[in-house]
Amino acid sequence: MKKGFFRKALLNTVLGTALAAVLGVAAGASAEAGTISLGHTTWVGYGPLYLARDLGYFKEQGLDLDLQVIEEASLYMAAAASGKLSGSASTIDEILKYRSPDFCFKAVVALDESYGGDGLVVSSDITSLAQLKGKTVALNEGSTSEFWLSYVLGQNGLSLKDIEISNMSADDAAAAFIARRVPAAVTWEPNLTNVRKGNHGKVLADSSSTPGVIVDVVALGCEVIEKQPKDVAALVNGLAKANAFIKANPEKAYEIMAKGVGGYLKDPKDFAESAKGVRFYDADTNKVYLGTAAAPGPIAELIKSADATWSTLGKTRMKVDYAAMVDPAFVTAQP
């Protein structure tokens, strides 16, 4: 791929009027010392970012964190590529597809892992993954849903080539499954609960069986990491304090995070219920999961697996590995 092609193509096709309207005043924020701006979708796992912000954990260290809800990965990654955002909160498998020689970013801290929050729903007559062979599965192509299913199939001697994919969003996939238009779908909460309660079929597998595979991280532009190390450290330290607060005061934490994240999670009860499907990553978990440059943690194998999956499907811009995708220095520097 020619140098510069990805950035130009991405910005020309995606970063237009709609993106500018979504970002608003955030444009240019990533260049300001003391400010970090992140794009992300609505997800329970991003609650600690709002908790640390609203409890003042970032502000007390001189950091102003600007969080922008953008419900499309290509949009917030385009904004990060152009410098309109400092980075993103997203799954590592999702964002590595956008890494290129011209678009450098690295994960500096892990936020959470899906632990039952994502899953595969099937009709009642399907009792094993082997029975999916030749059947249609509704899922969002190019997303974490496709990567996770590829991983699960691979663990059972199958591959994506063994099924027929019907491309649609995770919510639309759930709707199509409930309407019996497809025999299987990959989706997430609260759709999994709706399937279980509505007698629409069953959840054949969920992410509780694949810990450490669907992991959200904060990834920042390499220039941001280089020029704003104190701000990055403040971000990582603030998140560590937020996770300690969650353990000590879960009900209050859910209340604050629900208000911050908003959307379908604005009710603290709904947030608390969704939180059952994730595991938040505290400081100690981060140190183990990210590891060090000399001794990479489990995230290295996840990156290797995701790179192999997306490369096979022709969706990567360059070959990536731990060194290209992770900067563990801020996590390892914590006491």
Rank of each mutant, 00 (worst) to 15 (best):
K106R: 14
A29I: 12
K319H: 11
D327P: 06
A81Y: 06
D206K: 05
A170L: 12
E301I: 04
H200E: 12
G221H: 05
L235W: 03
A20Y: 12
E301T: 04
V44Y: 05
S145H: 13
R53S: 14
E94C: 10
P229L: 03
D307V: 05
C222L: 11
L49Y: 10
G117A: 15
A295W: 00
S208K: 14
E72R: 15
D64Q: 12
V232N: 00
I92N: 10
S311L: 06
V288W: 03
Y76D: 06
V108D: 03
K197F: 13
G56I: 08
S82I: 06
T193F: 10
V232H: 05
A244Q: 15
N167Y: 04
F245C: 10
T13K: 12
A21E: 07
W148V: 06
K287D: 04
Y254A: 07
R279Q: 10
C104M: 13
L265V: 02
A174W: 07
P328M: 03
F58C: 02
L85Q: 05
C222H: 03
G291D: 00
L290V: 09
A18S: 13
Y50M: 05
K304S: 14
F177E: 01
K304Q: 13
E32W: 00
F58N: 08
K304Y: 09
A233N: 12
A107H: 11
I299H: 01
P298Q: 07
V25G: 15
A89W: 04
K59S: 11
E273I: 10
I70L: 02
K252E: 15
C222W: 07
F330V: 04
A138H: 07
V236N: 03
S159E: 09
L192Q: 04
F103N: 14
R53D: 15
D327I: 08
V213P: 05
K202A: 04
L265Q: 02
W148T: 02
V331K: 05
A323E: 09
S305Q: 10
E189A: 13
I303K: 02
K135T: 02
K202G: 04
G297K: 03
M77N: 13
L153W: 08
W148I: 01
A234Q: 01
S274N: 12
L160G: 06
H40V: 05
P101G: 11
A233W: 13
A300Y: 02
W43S: 15
F177N: 03
P268M: 08
V236W: 00
F103H: 14
Y264H: 10
Y50G: 03
A283L: 10
A52R: 08
S74W: 12
P190F: 00
D307C: 11
C222Q: 11
L63M: 02
K259C: 08
S37G: 06
